[in-house]
Computed example of a mutant assay.
Amino acid sequence: MGTITQALGLSEEQVRRLLQTAALAPSLHNTQPWRFRLTPDWIEVHLDRGRKLRVADPDGRELRIAGGAALFNLRLGLIGLGIRPVVTVLPDPANPDLVAIVRRGGRRRATPEQQRLLAAVPRRRTNRRPFAEVAVASPARYELTRAATEEGAWLHLVTDPQQRSELGWLARQAHQRQSADPAFLAEIAAWTGHEAGRPDGVPAAAGGPQPLSNGAWVMRDFTGGTGRIDGPDFEAEPLIGVLSVHTDGPREEIRAGEALQRVLLTATVHGLSVSFLSQLVEIPDVRDRMRRLLSGTRPPLAVLRIGHGWPVAATPRLRVEDLVLPASAATSTTPAHTDKELADDPHRA
């Protein structure tokens, strides 16, 4: 546990609120695998490898995506405080768990869009329950794809009937393979389906009803097998979005996390709900088949189920004090990119 201190000219209370904003990012099974180190001149974003899911995410891809999502929230929170963030991604080759160093790059007033996104941070939820059979309107679809593009990624909305059919089949196959793996089942049981009181993981109440094994789109059972369909079945035709980037690698995975969070917040602004079909990106050969099905080149990093859902409760969060690393070991290495280069990068402003 570290101490919340002043940073970037902000008071301790402002820093606390800023870290609370950053920590409301999504993560696989709500593991919350991010940590922050505070210095007077910069804030470091780190990964907590002890919270990595070794079966579902052996390569740490989803771990880095979560770190990128927290980084986006941190950037957005700083802009909300009138600060232009200057970001150095992966500054230390010897420390791959150091996601980014964020410095103060002068003043910046939040745009109306950024204000709406920031206001959506505490309202965003992963909604694992059935959605209404109501189509997502074209203007919202455009804004979702634009949100990904603004962060240097792509969101492919799957509208082709043949692609949808094949993607649904792949999702069911992946779900069946993971469900037959005792190690995977033990890992998911350790992080989901528990009673209220834990500050992390997915409590049973947030897991939604037990999915139908023969549904068009198979959702994970986060209830420990106790969930029951006590309302509408899962919708047959959700809007499916596949987030992809230029290529594989840690830097692009962090960028994908930033893009993912911007898409999720944009969905929240438009009154939409989102959950994840993570099995499609967690099994390597299934992920490769999906890549060839949709684009042929860009690696898919997240698959989203998007629609009109009913309100759900927030998942629990760790205390901010538990997310702060001791300041004594602050990074002092020379950044891999100069501040000017990154200040001129619109995706890092």
Rank of each mutant, 00 (worst) to 15 (best):
A119I: 01
A148I: 05
G77E: 01
I43W: 06
G249I: 05
S27R: 05
E133Q: 12
I188Q: 15
R319C: 09
V102A: 07
T111W: 07
D57H: 00
E237M: 02
R164V: 04
A314I: 03
G193Y: 10
A343H: 09
D288C: 03
R17P: 00
Q162L: 08
L167W: 00
A69V: 06
P161E: 10
S213V: 01
A259F: 08
A22G: 12
W169H: 15
R251W: 02
L318E: 09
L117E: 00
R305Q: 03
E321D: 14
E166M: 12
G77S: 06
P182F: 08
R84G: 04
L301K: 04
G193K: 12
P326Q: 08
I43S: 01
K52H: 14
Q6V: 03
E282F: 07
P161F: 12
P26N: 06
G106L: 05
R116L: 14
D221S: 15
T111A: 10
L81Q: 14
A256N: 07
A140I: 00
P209S: 14
L71T: 12
R125V: 00
P33C: 00
G193P: 08
D221W: 15
K52P: 02
V89W: 01
T111H: 09
Q114D: 13
R172W: 02
L8P: 10
A25R: 04
E62Y: 08
L38P: 09
Q261D: 02
L301Q: 13
D285A: 06
R124W: 00
V263L: 10
S179A: 14
R61F: 07
E187P: 05
R108L: 15
H175R: 11
L8D: 11
R289Q: 14
E44M: 09
V86H: 04
G105K: 11
E252S: 10
F222V: 03
V274A: 10
R164G: 09
L117S: 03
L325T: 14
E44A: 13
D92N: 07
I306C: 13
T266K: 09
W42Q: 12
P284D: 10
L78W: 13
G309W: 08
A25M: 04
I229F: 08
S278Y: 03
E44F: 09
V121K: 14
G60E: 02
R51Y: 04
L170M: 10
F72L: 05
V263H: 04
L98H: 06
L293M: 02
T192I: 00
R251M: 02
A205G: 10
F276A: 15
E62Q: 15
S244F: 01
A171G: 12
